[in-house]
Structure formats: C-alpha cells, structure tokens
Design a binder for these strands. Structure first.
Lengths: 205, 205
DNA sequence: ATGCTGCTGTGATTTCTGTCACATTTTGAG
DNA sequence: CTCAAAATGTGACAGAAATCACAGCAGCAT
C-alpha cells in the first residue's frame, strides 16, 4: 500500500528517511499492539485498519478512550517515546491493521529537521487532547445510558455501517461497566425504538 | 517580578519579543480568567499564584481537572489560539494571580523561530496530556470517597499546608457532586482519623 | 444582643449501577 | 445430531450517590 497518500503534508526528505528507517508491522483484529507499562521503542503511524486506545487500572479494568484511524498517530507513543518512558495506555487492533513504526532515536532529529513532522506532532497532540477533553465530559457528566448511546453512534460512524457487531460483554468492558447493565439499557433502547438487538450485533435505527 | 527566572530555557531573542509584545495581567482570587466558549486572543503563561482549570457542561455543572502554577502555560489556550478557536475550558484564579498574555498572532512566528519555544509548547502538551490521562483514571475507576481523598491531598500539596481552606459546597462543585455527599464522606474520613473538620477548613492528619 | 446568612450535620427516599444467581437461546465443534 | 461454550434475558438485592427536607450552629452586621 502506498502510505504516502495518507500523509501528503510530509516533505520529500522526511519521506525518504521514514522509508529508510521505519518498519511496517501488521496486526490481526484483536491483537494487543501495546500494553500498559510496556517500554516504548517507536512511534506508530496508522496506515490501515483501526486501533482502540484504552486506559487500564490495576484491577484489570479497562476503559476505551478513542480510536486511531489511517493517517493518525499515537500521541502517547510520541510523548513517551521522546522521553523513553513506558506506555500509559493499551492499544488494541479492532480490525486487521497496518502500522508504520518509527524508531524512537529518530524523533529528536525529525523534530528539528522537518517542519512538516513537528507540525504533524503538534497537530496530533492537539486532536488527541481535544478527544480526551470530550472523554472527560462523558464520564464526568453523563450516565451510562447516554454513554452507551454515544458509544454505539461513534462505533457506527467509524465503520460507516448502521450496525455494530459486538457482544454486550465487549461493550461493558469498553465502558468499564458490567454485562447485565448494558443488556438492560440496550433493552430499554430497543423499547424506545432506537435499536434492534441481534446476537453479536446491534442495529441502529 | 522577574518572570525570566521562571522560564530559564527561553532564548534571549524569544525573551526580547515576549517583553516587547506580551501583556501582563493581574487577577484576584476567585476571578474567572477564561470562560468556556470565549474567543481566545492569547496564550497564557502563569507567573504567580495558581489557576484551576475546569471542564463545564451545558447544565451549569463544572469539574476541576487540574491546576496551573508559575512556570506553566495553558495548553488549551495554545491549542485554541493557534487555530483561533474558542475555549474548551474555564479557568479560575484560586489565589491572586499574575499572567503573561502572548498574542495569538505571534504563535506561528515563535514556533518557527525559537526552538526553546516549540520545545516549551511540546512539553506543555505532554504534561497536560498526562494530567488528563490521570483525570480519566480518577473518574473512570474510582468512587467519590477516593476522589475526595485525592482532591484533599492534591490541594494540600499545592499550597504546602496541611490544611485545606474551602467549604464542603466548593469541594462538591469541583468534583461535580453534591454538598451532602461530600459532608458525609468527610465525616467518615474524620471517624477514620484521616482529617479533622472545622468551619471552612479541613485539617489533614 | 438580635437576627440574618452561610456552613454543616443528618435522616428519609429514590435512582443508578454493580453483583449474584439462574434460565434460555444460539452457535459451532466433534 | 449432540453437547459444550458463548451470548442474552431477568429477577433479586446491595451499595453509591443524588435529592429533599430540616435542624443546629457560627460569624457578622446593625
């Protein structure tokens, strides 16, 4: 695949370096791309597929914050990579996914030499920051029913379909809730004619 | 006050421009420095005092995310300022506060010309991003009692005292909870010998 | 001192969410 | 087909938090 089309703003010199030094990696749907606490050795650019970014706590709880799609980069891997720290988040491939891994050691150099790179980094920070602000909104101000509605709508938007193919348990995990609660709220939504429930699939109306 | 000591990493040329173009502003404790939805005309560097950064929702609810202290800058004002957008947050002076306002129009120029400036911007994004991640942690994984304990400890840390001088109502507002809940939880903490309650003041033990 | 206002304590009640305990249904492997 | 595993439906209950309703108290202005 021709990744350059996804990053048209990159300068020729930058593209050259990336082509020379970066490594492309493939993941299957469901693969864990990065674990919390893992040492970060590279910054990831998404080429294809979709990645879910989670925050985890000690007790095994996880919480879906946002998605990364082709043309986007993992802000956390930039943040941690520059300082050679460990990851604050967990990343999971939602679909089969292609990623371009840029070694940590290059970051400083790229930042200094290529304006288009540091603009990209700044832009990445910005959009992830805004996304985090909206995450805070949802959990600080909204009940589970509203958060569930948002979850379904966002999920449908991302895939472009009007169906969401996940189990109630997976939704509960993403929202850090429990399966029974999600099942009941979904039933209520069905009664309000907002969705139609099927096995492993929810149809939005 | 000599603000340069707070930003020792700034280059001479950068300092010169800031001294020429930036405006210093003073706020009294309690003043609203920036409102949600307000048009952003400058980026703020904190010189003295302390600022609380809130996220608000439509129904008048507010939620304290983090503090800004001398030597720090408002990441949101950078993000919005560069794109000339409106504020996503509300900022309130907790103490009498001095701020250096750098006009939006300068941002692009400073980013390009002064390495120490864009490093400062990147560093600011990074630390606010980390802070937001920890905010998500607290509201996603912790109950009100734990969040209250964290609130009090952080508050005491920031002022350097072992007392926190606020009313229960103010705490409830900051945590987007209600006064009664906070009062009851504080009573429980007092019974566990973690705090001693006084009027408008909580003593940590 | 008097009275007002704002802060704090507390019970009663309700809503939301999480947990436990099962029943039922669907799917896929053998 | 048969059986086990996974997904879903539901009732009962517990705990957290919000809300309502007051009562008591401290500090301040007059």
């Amino acid at each position: 695949m021709n990744w350059k089309q996804l990053f048209p703003q990159f300068e020729p010199g930058l593209i050259e370096i990336i082509e020379k030094e970066a490594v492309q990696r493939s993941y299957n749907a469901g693969d864990i791309i990065m674990r919390t606490g893992q040492y970060i050795k590279s910054t990831a650019l998404v080429l294809e597929g979709r990645i879910k970014i989670y925050r985890e706590n000690q007790d095994g709880g996880e919480f879906l914050m946002y998605y990364l799609e082709p043309g986007q980069a993992c802000a956390v891997s930039m943040i941690c990579a520059i300082q050679s720290e460990t990851s604050e988040i967990m990343a999971k491939a939602e679909e089969d996914t292609e990623v371009l891994m840029i070694p940590v050691q290059l970051m400083d150099d790229l930042m200094n030499k290529y304006k288009s790179w540091y603009q990209f980094v700044i832009q990445t920070y910005r959009s992830r920051f805004d996304e985090l602000l909206s995450v805070v909104d949802h959990i600080a101000f909204h009940n589970m029913d509203e958060r569930l509605e948002f979850y379904l709508k966002r999920s449908a938007d991302k895939t472009g379909k009007k169906t969401v193919e996940v189990s109630h348990q997976q939704i509960a995990d993403d929202l850090n809730s429990s399966r029974e609660v999600i099942s009941r709220l979904l039933k209520k939504m069905e009664q309000r004619n907002l969705v139609k429930l099927h096995r492993n699939m929810i149809e939005l109306i």
